[in-house]
């Protein structure tokens, strides 16, 4: 029991520190770039964590969460573009309502199939949505995307908007974490390990899968709609399969069995991408090689390996005590 409490305290303090660090960014630096990078990390962190609710926890590898990420972004982008920037916040809300409906309907279709078919079906829907956004030039701006998405009022200030993102992201992650460690989260883990037994226990597998699919999609869309204000522009790339692929990458990089893993993975991925990208045009070779080594040698991801190392040191240190 004490052990459990201690763990809870240390996890809480870890979160306090992370939040504190992100909260300090605009105070330490006035650089718009650093604030922009920090915002990208926050948004991608939320997206990756929400994705990992599906994959790491429930074992449903979706290759199409970009659909919801893009849907969130485009509902904000389109409404601001057509109706004015006053609609920024209502657009986020409306977008989320739409995503709840869409993810419910699509969810009914996609959870019927398992394994690789689920992956393919989610990919297919996301690519279809991308194609439509791309082709429907008159309405969505097609490949040109939408520019000039400025949040209204006080949010127009970059720093205020940054804190707005920060609060929403961490509240969302806190909610997701509560869910992941609730009885609901426990059932999800059981669904991953042995769906048949979940049925024996009288729980409905499909219903729980649908629920987590909707939860994951909801927060992916929230991340997307926040991104619209970060860059002031959105683009069809947000719906493309590479966006879904990056969420997978971030989860593996950070550690897909750790709740924080994807968040740390998102941070590391974005920093690597920026630092290597700034120095060489051969970034795909370098990032590809790093990821290849990670996948082969450190399947637990960075957070997972750090925890394992720590456990190993802890054991050895304890053994040597006189």
């Amino acid at each position: 029991m004490t052990n459990d409490t201690a763990r809870r305290i240390s996890a809480t303090s870890l979160w306090t520190i992370i939040i504190l660090i992100f909260a300090l960014v605009p105070i330490v630096t006035t650089s718009a770039y650093k604030i922009n990078v920090a915002s990208h990390i926050l948004v991608w962190g939320l997206f990756a964590v929400s994705f990992n609710m599906l994959w790491g926890i429930t074992g449903m590898l979706s290759f199409g969460q970009a659909l919801y990420y893009g849907l969130g972004a485009y509902s904000v982008g389109l409404m601001v573009d057509y109706l004015g920037s006053g609609w920024f916040l209502p657009a986020i809300a409306l977008g989320l309502v739409m995503v709840i409906i869409v993810s419910f309907l699509l969810g009914l279709l996609v959870i019927r199939v398992g394994g690789v078919y689920f992956t393919m079906l989610t990919l297919a829907f996301a690519q279809l949505a991308w194609q439509i956004t791309f082709k429907w030039y008159d309405f969505t701006g097609g490949d040109d995307g939408i520019q000039g998405i400025i949040p209204p009022g006080i949010l127009e200030n970059r720093i205020v908007y940054y804190y707005f993102v920060l609060v929403i992201v961490f509240v969302s992650i806190w909610i997701l974490k509560r869910m992941a460690y609730s009885p609901f989260g426990l059932i999800l883990r059981c669904v991953q390990q042995n769906p048949a037994r979940v049925r024996f226990l009288g729980r409905r597998v499909r219903r729980n899968q649908l629920r987590v699919y909707m939860v994951s999609s909801f927060f992916a869309a929230l991340a997307g709609s926040l991104m619209a204000g970060v860059d002031s522009s959105i683009h069809t790339d947000m719906l493309f399969w590479t966006t879904s692929g990056e969420a997978i990458l971030m989860s593996v990089l950070g550690g897909l069995n750790q709740f924080f893993g994807p968040f740390i993975g998102a941070a590391i991925f974005i920093l690597i991408e920026d630092n290597i990208g700034a120095r060489t045009e051969y970034w795909p070779l370098i990032i590809g090689s790093i990821m290849l080594v990670m996948v082969i040698l450190f399947p637990k991801g960075i957070v997972g390996e750090v925890l394992r190392l720590k456990a190993w040191f802890g054991k050895n240190g304890g053994g040597r005590q006189p």
Partner: peptide, 20 residues
């Protein structure tokens, strides 16, 4: 810098150029 032909990334690079 390689823009990767990706707008979101190019925005980050452009911001870096300007402020850093």
């Amino acid at each position: 810098t390689d823009s990767k032909a990706r707008p979101a990334y190019a925005v980050r690079v452009a911001t870096r150029y300007i402020t850093e």
